[in-house]
Simulated scan of single mutants.
Amino acid sequence: MPPPPPSWFPFRQANPQARLRLFCFPYAGGGASIYNTWSAALPPTVELVSVQPPGRERRILEKPVHDIARLVEALEPEMRPLLDKPFVLMGYSMGTRIALALTQRWQARGEPLPLGLVVAAGGAPHMQRMSRGNLNDKDFIELLRAYEGTPAELFAHKELMEMVLPTLRADFALADSVLPATPVRVPIVAYGGLEDSHVSIADLERWRELTTGEFRARHFAGKHFFLRTERVPLLEALREDLTRWAPELAS
Rank of each mutant, 00 (worst) to 15 (best):
P2D: 05
P2I: 05
P5V: 13
S7E: 14
P10C: 10
P10R: 01
Q13N: 06
P16L: 03
P16I: 04
L20C: 06
Y27G: 00
A28E: 01
I34L: 10
I34V: 13
Y35Q: 07
T37D: 11
L42F: 01
P43L: 00
P43T: 02
V46L: 01
Q52F: 04
P54V: 10
R56K: 13
R56V: 12
R59T: 09
I60G: 06
I60Q: 14
K63I: 13
V65N: 05
V65R: 02
I68M: 10
A69T: 08
A69R: 12
V72K: 10
P77A: 04
E78G: 04
M79A: 12
V88G: 00
L89W: 14
T96W: 00
A101D: 04
A101I: 07
R105M: 10
R109F: 02
G110D: 06
P112D: 07
A121P: 08
P125E: 14
Q128M: 13
M130R: 14
R132Q: 06
N134C: 07
L135R: 05
I141L: 13
E142K: 08
A146S: 15
P151F: 04
A152Y: 03
A156I: 03
A156P: 00
M161G: 00
A170T: 09
D171P: 11
L179S: 12
T182F: 03
P183A: 01
I188R: 09
A190F: 11
E195D: 15
S197A: 14
I201S: 10
E205L: 09
W207F: 03
G213W: 02
F215S: 02
H219L: 15
F220K: 01
G222T: 06
F225A: 06
F225W: 05
L227P: 00
R231M: 11
L242M: 06
W245L: 11
S251W: 06
